[in-house]
Amino acid sequence: MIEQLREAVCGLHAELVRYNLVAWTAGNVSGRVPGEDLFVIKPSGVSYDDLTPASMVVCDLEGNVVDGAHAPSSDTAAHAYVYRHMPEVGGVVHTHSTYASAWAARGESIPCVLTAMADEFGGEIPIGPFALIGGDDIGKGIVKVLSGHRSPAVLMQNHGVFTIGASAKAAVKAAVMCEDVARTVHVSRQLGEPLPIRQDDVDRLYDRYQNVYGQRSSR
């Protein structure tokens, strides 16, 4: 199971590059090992072109390295904190994607003015507190903001995007969609004031997307 997850997490980093969510070695994906108090995460400072399943690092839920030849991501403590306090989370992603990070730099939530936002995020994409990298303060901010919130994404002030999901792939999808709507809402505000969506319509859109949309057997 760990080797399969190493392969999956490694492959998902290519999606961050594919969707232009990262630059140089910034950003990371992690995935919880099912049934174990372990997760797999990207090594620190290694080029995306050089990532391999073997270079992924296995950590316990305190952020200690259990297996791997590399030092883990500098965001490991944040990921570990999320896994410890949100047992439903199976994957965590961090990016500095341009438009979403621009909202984070302003310390501003992205308002729910698109049906795609209602579908995926169930409302606004919230802003989280400023926190320094390296310890678990970022993780504390993520958990505080996203616990009980529909959104799988949070914009950490002056930093960037963190997303969660039932799997690492779901968290990557949330990061992709977060950047997509951040860009569109930004452009909309250059043209004028975006029109809000009524809360009852947001609720209906979210319910339809989460419970009806797509091929149910594959979700």
Rank of each mutant, 00 (worst) to 15 (best):
L61P: 02
S47T: 00
I125M: 11
V161F: 06
M86C: 00
L132C: 15
Y19R: 09
G134Y: 08
E124I: 10
V154C: 05
A104P: 06
A168F: 03
P152I: 03
T115M: 14
D136V: 14
Q157W: 07
P53I: 10
L146R: 04
G214I: 04
V17A: 06
V66F: 07
S167G: 00
I197T: 14
I110R: 07
E179C: 02
V82A: 00
M56N: 06
A105N: 09
R18V: 05
A153E: 01
G135K: 14
A14R: 13
A102Q: 08
A71F: 11
M1N: 14
P43Y: 00
P111Y: 13
C10Y: 12
K144A: 15
G135F: 13
G135C: 12
V145F: 08
V29G: 00
L12T: 11
S55W: 01
P43F: 09
I164F: 03
Q157Y: 05
C112N: 07
G192C: 04
E15V: 14
S147V: 07
K140Q: 14
A80M: 00
E193P: 06
L195Y: 01
S73P: 04
Q157F: 10
S44K: 02
V202P: 04
T115A: 15
T95P: 05
E193L: 09
T52R: 09
V113F: 15
G11V: 09
R204F: 10
G141E: 05
G123P: 10
A102T: 08
S55L: 03
R208M: 10
Y206Q: 02
Q157S: 12
T163G: 01
Y99S: 08
T76P: 05
K173H: 09
V212C: 11
G148V: 10
V172M: 06
A118Y: 01
D136S: 14
A131T: 11
G90M: 00
E108P: 11
Q4S: 15
V40M: 05
L38A: 08
G27W: 03
G123V: 13
A8F: 15
V176A: 01
A26N: 07
V113W: 13
G45H: 00
R6F: 14
K169Y: 15
E3T: 11
N158A: 11
R106V: 14
G11L: 09
D200I: 10
M1D: 13
A118Q: 01
V92C: 05
I2H: 13
V17I: 03
T25H: 02
K173P: 00
R84V: 02
C112K: 11
P72K: 08
Y99N: 09
N20P: 02
L191A: 11
Y99W: 06
Y83A: 09
R208V: 12
R106M: 15
P111N: 14
G139A: 14
H149P: 08
M56D: 07
M156D: 09
V92S: 03
H85N: 13
Q199S: 10
S74T: 14
S217K: 12
F162L: 01
V40Y: 03
P43A: 04
E7N: 15
P34A: 02
L12E: 12
V17H: 03
M1E: 15
L61F: 11
T184M: 11
V93L: 02
A104V: 10
G148L: 11
E120T: 07
D180A: 14
L12S: 12
A168C: 06
A26M: 06
P72R: 03
D75C: 10
L12Q: 12
L195T: 14
G35T: 04
E108G: 10
G128E: 08
S47A: 13
L16G: 07
